[in-house]
Simulated assay, not measured.
Amino acid sequence: MSTPHNQAQKGEIAKTVLMPGDPLRAKFLAEHYLEDVHQFNAVRNMFGYTGYYHGKQVSIMGSGMGQPSIGIYSHELFTQYDVEAIIRIGSCGSLQKDVHLRDIIIVQGSCTDSNFAHQFELPGTYSAISSYDLLEKAVEQAKLKNATYHVGNVIASDIFYHADQDSGKKWASMGCLGVEMESYALFATAAYLGKKALTLLTVSDSLVTQEETTAKEREQTFTTMMEIALEIA
């Protein structure tokens, strides 16, 4: 069995999948944290791995950038591979002055400028939220690790280079903690299919202070977020 985007066979993917946007972050995480690792996917270089963390089977797979990309991969994992939960582990830009570089955002809900939910033909605006049991466990782990974390809304935008330079400020005025590009589609897909989803984000740059991390740092040093996700998988 395979899909247009995944060469895995039935049974090669665990019930819980950790999903970074960057496939190289998936590779780093698998190589440094999992035992008895097996690579199940390399289609389009969207690497996927299954292994064991403290005796527990876990899969890790990249999602690519943007709502359409994570929409494809999450849908196939949920519907074709019997995955029950996906935990996105990504990076984001801070929209608030008290949300600093390398802080962790545990995403409670996701706003969007995307039209992703139009497919469901709802008679209104859908509020995409995480699965509370996963969120609660993530908060507990963050406390145990003495991590600096925030819980709240983010904006999942379809646009990285936005023509409206005040867009971030407008979302910040509504309390959004950060901006990223995937969570809304993940949460909406999980809800529609009766599955579970959570997003954990590490702040990689600040739209307030203009501070930023490097691509290599984003790939290899956001380990606290990774460890929280592994513990609750």
Rank of each mutant, 00 (worst) to 15 (best):
Q9C: 11
T223A: 01
M19H: 06
L207K: 13
A142H: 05
I60F: 03
T3P: 07
V37H: 10
S63G: 15
A26F: 08
R44H: 12
E35S: 15
L18R: 05
S94T: 02
M1F: 08
R44K: 13
E31D: 15
L29Y: 13
N45S: 11
K97D: 15
A42Q: 14
H38D: 10
L201K: 00
I106N: 03
Y126P: 02
E35Y: 05
I129R: 02
F222S: 00
L77W: 08
E76V: 11
T209Q: 04
E212N: 09
G178V: 03
A229T: 05
Q119Y: 12
Q39T: 14
V43E: 07
N41H: 06
I86H: 05
E31S: 11
E219Y: 01
D158G: 08
M65H: 02
P23R: 09
E121H: 11
G90P: 05
I129M: 10
R25Q: 12
A229M: 01
S91Y: 04
V154S: 05
C176E: 11
E211G: 01
Q80I: 03
A147F: 06
C111I: 05
K97P: 14
F28M: 11
Q39G: 08
M61H: 12
Q96I: 07
S131F: 01
K10C: 03
R25L: 12
V37M: 10
A30L: 07
V154E: 06
E217F: 12
H100L: 15
A188K: 00
S114I: 06
T223Q: 11
C176S: 09
E140T: 14
Y73M: 05
M65Q: 03
A191V: 01
F120M: 15
Q39R: 15
G152D: 08
I129Y: 04
M174F: 15
V43D: 03
H32D: 14
I86C: 02
G124M: 05
A163W: 04
T213C: 09
V208P: 08
K169L: 12
Y126T: 04
L135H: 06
Y192G: 09
